[in-house]
Simulated scan of single mutants.
Amino acid sequence: MAPILDIKNLYKNYGPVEVLKDINVAIEPGDFLVLVGPSGCGKSTLLNCIAGLEDITSGTISIDGRDMTHVSPKDRDIAMVFQSYALYPTMSVAKNITFGMKVRGVDAATQAEKLEKVAGQLQIEPLLNRRPGQLSGGQRQRVAMGRALVRDPKLFLFDEPLSNLDAKLRVEMRSEIKKLHHNLGATMVYVTHDQIEAMTLATKIVVMKGGIVQQIGSPAEIYNHPANLFVADFMGSPAMNLIPARAKKNGDGTKIEIARSNGAPLVLTDHHATDLPEDVILGLRPEDIAEAGFRAGEDVQEAECLIDMVEPAGADTYVVSELGGKQVTARLHAETKAQAGVPLDLAFDLAKVSYFEPGTGERLN
């Protein structure tokens, strides 16, 4: 299957400043691509380049097999949903949604038919005669999406569409967008700085930093096998524990030694790790450190750790212990008896471990 969006060797400069550096991304029809990264990483600029709102310095952008690099935005067969909604305040919801079709000379009967269909999909039929000023943030967001949907484009582009909504509404709208993607089978490119949003919505994630793609993969690949320290730290909440350690090969595997300020080092044996340099950074997600007795498997190793802090969080309790000079978080069950200042046996699941090179930050396993 040919990619619906194919970006090759894309560079974008503002004068001498390189904002995007050698971007290569391709997605299939029906994919939900999420561009994620901290503020200023270039994700919105990349979206604007796909839309044709920004000229690129070099490289190519193809949509459905056609080179669109120098084609104007209106001829790219895309629809964009902005953070600000960009609705016409003096027009009714119905007119906001049909305005683009009217400008393009679509006949009134087709306009009415498409409006009815989209209003049903988004459940905004009762709002059609209202004006944007009479709507809540979530309702305005639906109208902005409706305006994009009636175009039936090759690509939907979303630029942080939920960042103006409160937390509860964001979760609801996230579900709406996911459902919409599922029902329409549409291809979507979505920009966010919220990694939970990225993990929830995407079929494919592009993690960016400083205008450079750090990793491209499915949510599971990005979460379980981060390509470097930046991705490991950025994706996941709470973030992955990144613990400085020393690796020493011995007969049946590699001994991983982690310094502790309050006594002897913590020593774990990884039976699968080979060829690690002496200095490594060990990465383990909080859910891969459990209370002893609650995790079984040949790669699970237990060790006593002094608990510094206990944070109840409803269904889970997070406990923090100092290892390798870092605050290390473990995710325990809600009924744990863990107490601050009291040692507790923790189980480390080395089947889930990631190792990183301290200097370059690159993944080693």
Rank of each mutant, 00 (worst) to 15 (best):
V71F: 09
I50G: 06
Q83R: 12
D349L: 12
P29V: 04
I27R: 00
N241E: 02
A198C: 02
A330L: 12
L128P: 11
F99A: 12
D233S: 15
L266W: 15
D6R: 05
K352W: 04
V81H: 14
L242M: 07
A227T: 08
T336V: 10
Q327I: 04
R147G: 10
S163T: 09
V189K: 06
F230E: 06
A227D: 03
R246C: 03
Q214R: 06
Y223S: 11
A334Q: 14
I281Q: 05
S163K: 06
G105L: 00
G100L: 09
Q214D: 02
A86N: 11
R76M: 09
R76V: 11
S39K: 04
R170H: 01
G293W: 10
M145K: 07
M240P: 10
A245C: 02
N164S: 15
D75I: 02
R151G: 06
V328F: 06
A108T: 11
L46E: 01
A296E: 15
K74C: 07
V191A: 04
F294A: 00
L276T: 04
A273Y: 06
D299M: 13
R285P: 08
I281A: 03
P16Q: 09
A119S: 09
G297W: 11
D349Y: 10
T110D: 14
A290P: 05
L180S: 01
E54R: 06
L344Y: 07
K95M: 07
D75C: 08
L5N: 08
K249P: 03
I196M: 09
C305M: 15
I177M: 03
P3C: 04
V171R: 08
A245V: 03
Y85V: 03
L5P: 03
K95E: 15
I23E: 00
T336Q: 13
M309A: 14
A109T: 12
G137I: 01
G52S: 13
N9R: 08
F356R: 07
G37Y: 11
H271S: 15
A315M: 07
N365Y: 07
K178M: 07
N48Y: 11
Q327E: 15
D233P: 07
M101N: 08
T269E: 11
T110Y: 10
P244L: 01
D64Q: 14
T254V: 05
N250H: 15
H225A: 13
L20R: 05
D166M: 07
I307K: 07
L346A: 10
D252S: 14
H181Q: 03
A245F: 04
F348Y: 14
P277D: 01
M235E: 02
D64Y: 06
K117Q: 14
T269A: 05
G293E: 07
V36S: 00
